[in-house]
């Protein structure tokens, strides 16, 4: 079962990429692979105000991960219990099939090892009861980590609050 979700609250994201750097630091990666990425689209005018949309792209740890199905060596694995998808470097032969299979481009190429790296939800950290690195260091705390059913409440509650505030405010 996919037990966890990284929920990115775009409203509060400033696109600083602290998550990107912290992830690379933890995985001790060379220049090149970016297991998490923040993509900025914009600015564009929305009415008379400029807006930029930042999208956080880690691995989504699919319930049915195509990368796992595609991997010929069994290196790409979905962990039983919590559904974390990660790659075992001992078994990875660098065939890149997972990179081709993933609809989100999550598996990344490490040119130094000739193997794939990816977001593993910092499974050692979550096993120790900690949050993944990206959610830990996020400057605005816009990356939330937890069970998917709790994540949806963040946006739902804020929407309700904002709507309610509008009704109290005479303007």
């Amino acid at each position: 079962m996919s037990q966890y979700m990284l929920f990115h609250d775009q409203k509060n994201c400033i696109g600083c990429e602290a998550c990107v750097v912290a992830c690379k630091t933890r995985q001790k990666l060379p220049q090149g692979p970016l297991p998490t990425l923040v993509v900025a689209v914009g600015p564009r005018w929305t009415g008379d105000q400029p807006r930029t949309v930042f999208t956080f792209m880690p691995c989504f740890h699919c319930e049915v991960p195509w990368c796992v199905a595609a991997c010929p060596t069994g290196a790409m694995q979905k962990r039983s219990g919590d559904g974390v998808v990660s790659v075992d470097p001992e078994l990875c032969v660098g065939c890149k099939t997972c990179m081709a299979a993933c609809p989100w481009g999550a598996p990344q190429w490490n040119p130094v090892t000739g193997k794939v790296v990816k977001c593993d939800l910092c499974k050692d950290r979550i096993d120790a009861g900690l949050k993944p690195t990206c959610a830990t260091v996020c400057v605005t705390q816009c990356i939330h980590f937890g069970p998917p059913e709790e994540m949806s409440e963040i946006r739902r509650e804020r929407y309700a609050r904002t709507k309610a505030e509008g009704q109290f405010d005479p303007e």
Binding site: E17, A18, T133, C138, V139
Partner: peptide, 27 residues
Amino acid sequence: EVSFIEGNPHVSGMEGSLCPKGAAGKA
């Protein structure tokens, strides 16, 4: 070796947060 850097969790308003430059300290 440094394995992780985060904002000091005991300091109110930091609580883990760190900017990209701070996160690149190990580099």
